[in-house]
Design a protein around this nucleic acid. Structure first.
Lengths: 358, 358
DNA sequence: TTGTAGGCGTTATCAG
DNA sequence: CTGATAACGCCTACAA
């Protein structure tokens, strides 16, 4: 018996054979096409998936039949054989965090441009939920993008041995990653603050276990030393508006003339708290964020921030994966760091001597 | 020959048989477990997927072997047989549009709570791209959620005959949908505006072919008549900040004391334009939006808006699909409309007699 | 160039 | 209660 369905069909009984799919109960298969074109199913497969390996005439006949039947190869059957699902997964910590949007969009665009689908999942809280989610999703995808993951390095490395993995905003030995060139944006920032006469700066740090937080802090330190500016770090803090709001008291106590927050959300929170306490921004205190999320240019005053290229990060991560999966060079160079740049808006201004009034 | 691999294994040659997977090249299969537990592969399948249909002893032995081999049933092989992938697709017009965030999050949460994966795709521009995307994704998913789709009703109906479909913010005869109860929010709004002394209102409409735009306009009309308020419609407009900004001139010409925009983005744009022209909000002009996106409460003044429950919409859409797919009643009632509610903030205030200064 | 005959991993049916 | 066997739809040696 050649194919699963062919038997029913070659049986000479017409529509009577309710089991046969003469009025197809589902999508057409290569068996349907084979029958219509009068060839063997394997020939159909060849004609459709490896063009040039059948005679032009048969191929034409097969294509015609396929078109007539509105045929689409079942990706699952194909995946079972090839082990490839043409699906990629993107795991983000928090979908509603504006920084994730750009990444999601970039990844989706790059994937669909290559006819891949994108599964997205949220790793809500800590690493345990994330591990479970990954475990669930893994067998159905060809590769994994971990954006701001909370997983310990060891697990990431293990994961990398079992499936192609690309990290965003996190560096782990031996695992490819898309990372920002924080240095450039930071040095632009310190130039900017220096030119405005600031000499005492506070950094509102984010989560203690965040790789990107450590890098931002680190680069700020180095650049501050080089620029001969004082830098104090306040934190760790929750990387949210609420987290930023809660830091005002400490900020006022420390008495800097400018504050750099771990991200825009915290910067926005700090500005809200400042406004309600009568601390003027940038009159009394300059405020800077990281990311340049949606809303950063809508608030009052518009926020000066170091922009991260979320869309590009998502695209590159996908391209990276695709290169490994298909062995093809992609146009967007997936190597090198992603540039960051200072976006100067109105939350930074000349330093107020002595810092904000307490 | 019983199973694809069993033959190699029962051949009495040890590790020599390089073809056999004695040091497994991939994940463990039920054949590996069968061998380890000394039973038939079909028994393994039964023990693992239909508990209670094997003796407790065998089941225990099989489970132990499965655990030892770190076995996970291959979802693709399972899908090939069952036709079910445990994957749902969510198509949104624009991922970076803040209204989509809530929907995506809600859908992802509801799906993963039921061990389903969520594929998301963006339908960028017009319906043609969307149709192509759906075509690509369809064979790999069990159901489809179309959020603010641009597809013509006819295609949606066709789609619905081939696969379970749930719409968000769009009603099509015979296709289940998650829709907002616009009436409630709108009547609250008109009460609010009436109480503030407004009698002349403008509605800044969105895209002409948007179902939700038509409903918002319609309900506003009805409520305005009932409340004996004048209502003029200005549009259609692009549902963006830029689109909103561009309407200021027409608004001033029409001379209303309050403006209701199709969405928050447009309301924000209008307020920006107003600010730069010296028109005070709400002093000279009250402004209201729809959706309550992230940023609406961060801008100055914070925007009064009619909140749409994006997260709930996403959850309900998934629950709806799941009910049809699994025949199980979900806890979140997927019937009935989703409540909208007026969120009063500071962009609305007492009417200025005669409207904004021109 | 085309047909034949498995195999991918799982589930379902049918015997025993 | 368990084993054998045949699908699910596609792909690919191998043979003709």
């Amino acid at each position: 018996m050649s194919g699963p369905v062919a038997a029913d069909k070659s049986a000479s009984e017409p529509p009577v054979t309710a089991a046969g799919r003469l009025s197809p109960p589902g999508p057409a298969t290569i068996y349907d096409i084979a029958q219509l074109a009068g060839v063997n199913p394997s020939t159909v497969s060849r004609a459709l998936s490896t063009p040039g390996r059948t005679s032009a005439a048969t191929e034409a006949r097969i294509r015609a039949a396929a078109a007539q039947l509105n045929f689409r190869a079942n990706p699952i059957a194909r995946a079972l054989h090839s082990g490839r699902t043409r699906t990629l997964a993107l795991i983000v910590a928090d979908i509603t965090n504006p920084v994730a949007f750009g990444i999601v969009r970039g990844a989706e665009q790059a994937a669909s441009a290559r006819d891949y689908s994108l599964v997205i999942a949220e790793s809500q809280e800590s690493g345990e939920a994330e591990a479970g989610t990954i475990h669930r999703i893994l067998p159905g995808v060809d590769g994994l993008i971990l954006a701001t993951t909370r997983l310990p390095s060891q697990r990431i490395i293990e994961l990398g041995t079992r499936t192609p993995v690309v990290l965003i905003n996190r560096a782990v030995e031996g695992v490819p990653a898309v990372l920002p060139d924080i240095e450039r944006g930071v040095s632009q920032l310190l130039d900017h603050l220096g030119a405005l006469g600031h000499s005492s700066i506070a950094f509102l740090s984010g989560p203690a276990d965040s790789w990107i937080n450590a890098r931002r802090s680190e680069h700020l330190m180095v650049a501050a030393v080089r620029a001969e500016l004082e830098l104090v770090e306040i934190g760790p803090n929750s990387p949210t508006i609420t987290g930023g709001r809660a830091t005002l008291r400490q900020v006022l106590a420390a008495g800097p003339t400018a504050v750099v927050a771990f991200n825009d959300l915290m910067a926005i929170g700090l500005m809200q708290a400042a406004a309600s306490e009568g601390v003027r921004v940038p009159g009394d205190l300059s405020v800077v964020g990281f990311d340049d999320i949606f809303a950063s240019d809508l608030i009052t005053p518009p926020l000066t921030t170091i922009r991260a290229q979320g869309v590009s990060a998502g695209q590159r991560a996908v391209d990276h994966l695709l290169e490994r999966l298909e062995g093809v060079e992609m146009e967007r160079a997936p190597t090198g760091l992603l540039e960051t740049a200072l976006v100067i808006r109105e939350s930074t201004g000349p330093a107020r001597p002595g810092g904000a009034p307490r």
